[in-house]
């Protein structure tokens, strides 16, 4: 690292530990350390059944984290992911229970509606030039209010669509590999994460998201249709919130219209712990998923240890600050 020549720095040759991999590795190491800690100090923590609990507890936050990661990399923010999840769950309820349509309509309808509402946020940001924080703060309230209006402030149950329950619960894998009981909701989360990672790294949308997040003006002056890609980015976030809405309502077998507030902060925390920069241009889906796992391992572990909820919240806060501090230190060293 400290070669003293005048040759241009060649950071690529400083070894396989580039900052990006180091950051990912740090989050991963923290995850392993937490697992190790709880295995030693929380009785009954280290059991397969509990690992399944943890995975299942990660599903919703992981999916919302992925949604918000796209937006944060584009140098935006989405505060509406939590209530948008609730709104899409209510939409699924309206389609399946109130209108009595078959399952696929509910699934596709919820996701498309989420995408549509997300695109509205995006349009407010791109066309009306409203700062993302404000636009999605407004959308957070709109989605929350609409969820209550559409549902009549009552939960909508999915008893008429028994198969709905299997979106989140039950296990397809068990049928293929007996004994490996991974709930479907976890598979959905990993599916969303893989699709998101492919979109982020391989599609033109992903490339534009990074460009927008790093230098929007340069992208605009390169002839990029900045407004359109912003709308698409927020629309994609809304669409993924739709998946989150399906997961949570399937798990509870009901769309609970009052739920969802505060979930956006957990999602943002997962992304940040996973190394996504709030100033944009930097972040990975894998990081966010690891971040979401860190949060649920922490929560689960502390609960198994019998630590009170209050302290769990305090410790989560400390972890967020520590994660960003480590990130800053690594960045300076690079």
């Amino acid at each position: 690292m400290t070669e003293t020549t005048l040759a241009p720095a060649a950071p690529e040759k400083t070894g396989f530990l580039t900052v990006a991999t180091l950051q990912k590795a740090v989050a991963f190491v923290v995850l392993i350390l937490l697992l190790g800690f709880f295995s030693l100090f929380a009785p009954n923590f280290a059991q397969w059944s509990n690992m399944v609990n943890i995975m299942q507890a990660t599903a919703v936050n992981g999916v919302l984290g992925v949604a918000v990661t796209f937006v944060i990399i584009s140098a935006g923010i989405d505060l509406s992911v939590g209530t948008m999840m609730t709104l899409t769950a209510v939409i699924a309820g309206l389609i399946l229970t109130n209108a009595g349509l078959p399952l696929p309509f509910g699934v596709v309808g919820a996701m498309l509606f989420g995408g549509f509402m997300g695109a509205i946020s995006g349009a407010c940001i791109a066309k009306l030039k409203i700062p993302p924080f404000i636009a999605t703060l407004g959308m957070m309230q709109i989605a929350r209010g609409l969820a209550l209006v559409f549902s009549g402030a009552k939960p909508i149950y999915f008893n008429d669509t028994p198969s709905y329950y299997y979106i989140s619960s039950g296990s397809v894998i068990t049928r293929l590999i007996p004994g490996l009981e991974v709930p479907n909701g976890v598979l959905v989360m990993f599916g969303v994460a893989i699709a998101a990672a492919v979109i982020l790294n391989r599609s033109i949308l992903g490339r534009y998201i990074f460009a927008l997040g790093s230098n929007e003006e340069a992208a605009r002056l390169s002839g990029v249709n900045v407004d359109m890609w912003k709308i698409v980015t927020y629309g994609l976030s809304g669409l993924i919130c739709g998946v989150g809405g399906l997961l949570i309502s399937s798990r509870l077998n009901s769309a609970q219209p009052a739920l969802g507030l505060g979930y956006e902060l957990d999602a943002i925390a997962a992304a940040v712990i996973g190394g996504t920069s709030l100033s944009g241009g930097r972040g990975t889906i894998l990081g966010t998923i690891i971040g979401a796992f860190i949060m649920s391992v922490l929560t689960n572990g502390l609960r198994v240890m019998g630590v009170q909820e209050e302290w769990k919240i305090v410790i989560t806060g400390i972890i967020i600050i520590a994660a960003v501090y480590v990130d800053t230190v690594l960045r300076k060293k690079a």
Binding site: F45, S49, N50, N53, A57, A258, L259, R303, V304, G306
Partner: peptide, 18 residues
């Protein structure tokens, strides 16, 4: 303590585990 249905679910599963 758990103030919504999903958080109660996770909490109870952790209690059962412990």
């Amino acid at each position: 303590y758990a103030n919504d249905a999903l958080k109660a679910t996770e909490t109870i599963k952790a209690i059962l585990q412990a």
